[in-house]
Amino acid sequence: MPSLDFDSIFGSLIELTRQRDQHALEVCLSRVLFDLAAPGVVRLYRVRETSDASTFVPVEQFLPGKNNDTSPGEENIPSRLRDVMRNCLKSCKHTALSLEGENWMVYPLLGVRKNVVALIVIESAREDVDLDSSVAMVLEIYQNFLALVNDNERDTLTGLLNRKTFDVKIGKAVAELQRLGQRTGDSDQREYCLAILDIDHFKSVNDRYGHLYGDEVLLLLASLMTETFRETDQLYRLGGEEFVVLLRDVGLEQTMDIVDRLRSAVEAYAFPHVGHVTVSIGVTRVLPTDDSSTIVSRADAALYYAKKHGRNQVFDYESLVAAGKLDASFRKPSIDVL
């Protein structure tokens, strides 16, 4: 194995431990593996699942002697390597391939749902058992650290992100919009929408069936949310029966369609012992001029409107204000509607 730059390797590992976002963790991990595999090439691909097939979206690549600021092209993946990547995706295990004098090693990265969300491909001109062993150890460090991050950031009952994490992430989303607006003058190239949903009459569920079955409803609702939204959407339980979804790169109209699919799925679902429950949902856009409390207040106002006007509905704040059904200065009363 060639001489390694341990200062660079440990520096990259330290930078990895500073990250909390999974995408940033994946990029830092790729950098560590690039330092280990020198003078090899490391490429990071995100897995995108569709109804027809799985595709590999290029995210980052690290090349010897390059600035490493360009992404690999999916069209450049050799067909045999693509087959190996698909096998890795199915088995969730490291796979390897020797092709045209190059050695390819493919490693799966798991998400919160224990499915493969990304692949790291290492291309080397040499076969090296020590490299494979070193990569395996770094990947174990990464997965352990990711588990610690998830334990700290997630709700203990549902496994969704918690309130503390929401306060951090919504601030980062607004900061990103502001940064894009300052740099390009067009923050609309990135969109965020936020939805708040609340289980209708949940207090009566707890009163009638007990908190054990109430908790089961919360767990199953979290599962329905996970099935409905993308891996990149951020799902939160703020507390009690209140949940939040932060959707990225989706406009308001499409967000309304997506959350209404969740509303319909919940309405149709037969919860054990409890039967059918419904949810009311309020939606709003996230603007670069917002702070977190303003965003939540707008979505909460739309949620309150949904509950006051029949429940089991989805409304967005912007349309309600435009239609004169909600005053722009409206804030939800401090006493919740059950």
Rank of each mutant, 00 (worst) to 15 (best):
L139Y: 06
R237G: 05
Q189R: 13
P333V: 09
V59P: 00
N115Q: 15
K332P: 06
I120C: 00
L13K: 05
T232H: 11
S133D: 13
L238G: 06
E242Y: 07
G159D: 06
G275I: 05
G324F: 07
D130W: 10
V217E: 00
C28Y: 01
N150A: 11
R230K: 12
G171M: 08
D35I: 01
F243K: 06
S297Q: 06
S223Q: 13
L303Y: 03
V41T: 13
V279H: 00
Y304W: 03
L157D: 10
P58K: 03
V27A: 06
P39G: 03
S133K: 14
D207R: 05
G239Y: 10
V47N: 01
L110R: 12
L44E: 00
G111V: 08
A37H: 07
I170Q: 04
V205R: 02
P288V: 05
P272V: 04
S71L: 11
E242S: 12
V47H: 01
E267T: 12
A38H: 10
L157S: 03
A195I: 02
N312K: 12
F315Q: 01
D69N: 15
L235I: 07
M225L: 09
Q61P: 02
L221G: 00
A136W: 11
V168L: 15
A38S: 13
A323V: 03
P272K: 07
L197S: 04
D188L: 11
D198N: 09
L218E: 02
D5E: 14
R113W: 14
V57D: 12
L119E: 03
E318F: 02
N144D: 09
F56W: 00
M85T: 03
L119Y: 05
Y192I: 08
V314E: 00
S51I: 12
T50W: 08
V245N: 06
L326A: 09
R331N: 12
L146P: 00
V129S: 11
A328N: 11
Y236I: 00
L29V: 05
L97V: 09
R237C: 05
S204L: 14
A173N: 04
F145E: 06
D35N: 10
S51W: 09
D257R: 13
R48A: 07
H273M: 13
R183E: 08
D167A: 14
E231C: 06
Q254H: 10
L338V: 10
G240M: 03
P64E: 14
S8A: 14
D207Q: 08
N67H: 14
L220P: 05
I141A: 05
M105Q: 07
L161F: 06
T95L: 13
E75Y: 11
M1T: 13
N68G: 15
Q22T: 14
S12N: 07
D5M: 07
Q254D: 14
S329F: 04
F6S: 10
L247Q: 02
G210H: 09
V277I: 15
L287N: 11
L157Y: 12
L119I: 07
G101V: 05
V250P: 01
Y209L: 07
E253R: 13
V314W: 03
K114Q: 14
S91K: 01
V314I: 08
A323P: 06
S133H: 15
D327M: 08
F6I: 15
S293K: 13
E267P: 04
L247G: 00
R43I: 05
